[in-house]
Design a protein around this nucleic acid. Structure first.
Length: 403
DNA sequence: GATCATGATTGTTT
DNA sequence: AAACAATCATGATC
């Protein structure tokens, strides 16, 4: 019955709902509108139109009209209409409550930010923690040293951390401001239309979800920035440094002393690494590069070989007084007044060549092992002539001397 | 800034 | 697994 009448007098349609006239306290059976009923109908339309318009207005404008609306004589009637509509729509709201599972992407980002020291409890240890974390992630003792020495890296990382926290704070402030604003608005609107606390809660949830997606973006771009920073600073190629002159000297001397068998045991590598202050893998790289480049440019390598041979011969002559080092001494005499106490190379000379001897004999020890390895130095036929000088200092020769 | 030197990486071979 | 070979990327020098 009511529905039929409603269909006959569809006053205002609101969100697809037809507002029945009888709920305004008017006589529903009265089909004829009296002269004072017409303006009433008009009033209601006006109020509802105002409400509709609120969504298109700025919050300030809505605020300004709020008072007018509250004082309107038809307000109670409007309220009851809205209550009735609510009765119908509230069912759909009840079903919308869902538990949000933790976003795996967000968790990944959070973990990474914590690991990098960007997001973390204490601020002071941030940069340090980041360094340790990244060093642990990349592994290797050499990388650890280089990571620590990169104060630039740490500075940039803490800069990223600072920006991240600033943005996060801004975001959180904006989120809470907006939430408070919306809650106020809803509370005020609840005087005109029925709004349950659950609905407000839900609205807050929606707002937080929206802001969360912004937060994810912030975290994502922060992670990207950290990755770029890391690749820039921790990529070994970018931070290549030439070895010290002394290290190169030691390596060259060892190389040309072991030309017939330039393949070394782990022990020999360790010792060289210790003497040169570089890692074992750097030693391997160096000898790998050296062998290839030696082979590629024999002429130049010969000159170098002769130079080191002469050097060694000179050194041996100069230090032949030292009993235990005869035929072993390859280091030049230390320059006057230039003998660093901890200098491995010159220490070798000063302590009777003991250190070098051990390296040299280690090289000899691996000779049998190296026989099973590939040997580029056995291949070129014309090489032996050029290596005449250098071959004087091959481990085999030393062995003969000792044998 | 062009060029060479050199340490590191990557893919292949043994 | 170690070495080779090619290549990359940076440092040093002119």
């Amino acid at each position: 019955m009511d529905d039929q009448r409603t269909m006959m007098h569809p006053t205002v349609s609101m969100g697809g709902h037809v507002v029945p006239q009888h709920t305004y306290g008017m006589d529903p059976t009265n089909q004829q509108l009296t002269s004072d009923q017409e303006p009433r109908k008009h009033d209601i339309s006006e109020i509802l139109q105002q409400i509709m318009n609120i969504t298109d207005q700025s919050l300030d404008e809505a605020q300004a009209r709020k008072h007018t609306l509250n004082c309107h004589r038809m307000k109670p009637a409007l309220f009851s209409v809205l209550c009735e509509i609510k009765e119908k729509t509230v069912l759909s709201l009840r079903n919308t409550q869902e538990d949000e599972p933790p976003d795996p992407q967000l968790m990944r980002l959070d973990n990474m930010l914590i690991a990098e020291g960007i997001a973390g409890p204490e601020k002071g240890g941030g940069a340090g923690a980041a360094t340790n974390a990244s060093a642990a992630a990349s592994g290797g003792p050499g990388q650890l040293e280089q990571t620590i020495e990169h104060s630039d890296y740490r500075a940039k990382l803490s800069q990223i951390r600072q920006i991240y926290h600033q943005e996060l704070e801004k975001y959180e402030q904006a989120c809470s401001e907006f939430t408070a604003h919306v809650m106020n608005l809803l509370r005020e609107q609840s005087r005109n239309r029925p709004i349950t606390s659950k609905e407000i809660e839900r609205m807050v949830q929606i707002i937080h979800r929206k802001f969360n997606s912004i937060q994810v973006q912030l975290k994502q771009s922060t992670c990207e920035a950290v990755m770029i920073l890391r690749s820039r600073f921790l990529d070994a190629r970018r931070k290549r440094r030439n070895f010290s002159k002394q290290a190169t000297e030691i390596l060259n001397e060892y190389f040309y002393s072991h030309l017939s068998n330039p393949y070394h045991s782990e022990e020999a590598k360790e010792e060289l690494a210790r003497k040169c202050g570089i890692t074992i893998s750097q030693i391997s790289n160096w000898f790998g590069n050296k062998r290839i480049r030696y082979k590629k440019n024999i002429t130049k390598a010969q000159e170098e070989a002769n130079m080191y041979a002469a050097k060694k011969a000179g050194g041996a002559a100069a230090y032949s007084m030292v009993p235990s080092s005869q035929g072993q001494m390859i280091s030049p005499p230390p320059p006057p007044g230039a003998v660093p106490p901890s200098d491995g190379m010159y220490n070798m000379s000063m302590n009777g060549g003991e250190s070098y001897q051990s390296v040299s004999s280690l090289g000899a020890n691996v000779q049998s092992q190296a026989q099973s390895q590939r040997h580029i130095f056995n291949q070129p036929a014309g090489m032996s002539d050029g290596l005449a000088a250098a071959s004087l200092y091959e481990p085999g020769v030393h062995q003969v001397q000792y044998g």
